[in-house]
Design a protein around this nucleic acid. Sequence first.
DNA 1: AAATGCATGTAACGCGTTACATGATTTT
DNA 2: AAAATCATGTAACGCGTTACATGCATTT
Lengths: 200, 200
Amino acid sequence: MARRTSSTPEVLLGLLTIEPMSGYDLGQLIQSSIHHVWNESYGQIYPSLKRLAAAGFLACKKEKQKGKPDRQIYSITAKGRERLARWLAVDPQPEVPRNELLLKMFFGSKASAPAIRQYVERMVERETAVLQRLDVIDREIAANPQYPDAPYWKMVLRFGQIELNAHLCWAQETLAALQKLSTGKVRAASGRKEKSHASK
Amino acid sequence: MARRTSSTPEVLLGLLTIEPMSGYDLGQLIQSSIHHVWNESYGQIYPSLKRLAAAGFLACKKEKQKGKPDRQIYSITAKGRERLARWLAVDPQPEVPRNELLLKMFFGSKASAPAIRQYVERMVERETAVLQRLDVIDREIAANPQYPDAPYWKMVLRFGQIELNAHLCWAQETLAALQKLSTGKVRAASGRKEKSHASK
DNA sequence: AAATGCATGTAACGCGTTACATGATTTT
DNA sequence: AAAATCATGTAACGCGTTACATGCATTT
């Protein structure tokens, strides 16, 4: 019966080791830091925080604001740190791969040649943009060496840079192969026409 | 309210363009072909096939077997091919990234140094093994050039090879960085001890 | 005698996104 | 006047895995 496998509570615990924050802050921080590695929506964040606080992994202080609703500021407890440590001691499990681009390419002969080329070109656009964003993050990390996790953040960042560059290499190779494939087909077709009387 | 985004029906339609098959066959085929790109469990496959057949995207023939239960052989219909083509004409959407290894590394300072090294070493073991499996698949594709999708299968395969090699490069770099980080810490700690009287 | 494989399927459950609700403040 | 931002939260729904059920045949 589908035992729990989600890391959502641990992400929140981990980010709250940086400093106490509200659910809204956590959502913002996820967007600006680990967005390329992990994602959480508010629909997950708020209920998770409540459960974690109820179980004693987090403490919650209400911060009153004029006009705006109260901010619920959560901070990690000793119990929460223990849970985070237990989770970090377990080897990370590989994700189930789900790559829609590759899936569609796998059925390439059923798609149009321009459509497939566009799959790859769009991917190049997307990932080139991400690479540029990683450069910005790189400078942010370099500017904040006071955080004890900074060297690890750098390693995570390097993963993204190396992987995305590899993807771009693949894209170049693939666009060339697609080109060859379509010209090859055209030539074979016109060749068949020209000497169709000689076939078989 | 969470409109449908799953590609499960289309995977099944796509694989059934190769040849008519049963749900069990499809499960086996997924394991042996696109397992590194996409995954489906029987709990998804069987109900999906039923729905697709009920909607006219697939036809179903019962094949009686002695002893064993009947095999339900599904084949794609013209309507099914249209649906597949419509799906292939839409640009693939990038997946939401969820990489537990990188997530745990992000919180590296809260984990033990040996644990983190092990994250990376285990990944190297896993992905090295996958690279070898891809080599086997490579030879299988080369031995079966009669399938019209074979050139595309090769491109998908190349993606895996290039990406995994990039991961292994990152792993080398990261293991070296982790080494430096821990020796640096040890030196700083022993340095502090030796001239603690001089500190601050 | 017990375990594994073939082959089909259903039920339960956890996960995660999206949509919606609220309400004040600030910006356009 | 309308839209966006801050800030919190809930409800509905689809997705996907796991566990279970069945039953015969073959293997250990």
